[in-house]
């Protein structure tokens, strides 16, 4: 298989091979794969690769995907400027 040539997480350039090796070595969850390889931790916040990572983990471990989200979402879920985050735009009284 062309696992070493297949990039899964584009932001962090993590390959299929790295992810599968990690799962096999540590028999771990998507969350642990993320912490060990940085897959899903990139600029897009996992928007591109998150569902794929869940599928690879499920297929490799031979388990169904869990109900709880393994790859959590954190605010801000969209890129936001410091001004916006600091409430600079706010028209609150």
């Amino acid at each position: 298989m062309a696992g070493e040539k297949t990039i899964v997480c584009r932001c962090e350039e993590v390959t299929l091979e790295t992810i599968v090796d990690t799962i096999e070595q540590y028999s771990c969850s998507s969350r642990e794969v993320k912490l060990r390889t940085r897959a899903g931790m990139g600029y897009c916040g996992g928007r591109t690769c998150r569902n794929v990572i869940d599928r690879i983990v499920a297929a490799t471990n031979g388990e169904p995907i869990k109900d709880e989200l393994q790859l959590s979402y954190r605010s801000p879920i969209r890129p936001a400027t410091f001004e916006v985050l600091g409430g600079g735009h706010e028209n609150e009284s």
């Binding site: 062309a2 040539k5 297949t6 990039i7 899964v8 584009r10 299929l16 928007r47 591109t48 690769c49 569902n51 794929v52 599928r55």
Partner: peptide, 11 residues
């Protein structure tokens, strides 16, 4: 959202 199928060269 769309779920990609990564394959060599998809970048």
């Amino acid at each position: 959202t769309e779920v990609p199928t990564p394959i060599p060269g998809w970048t």
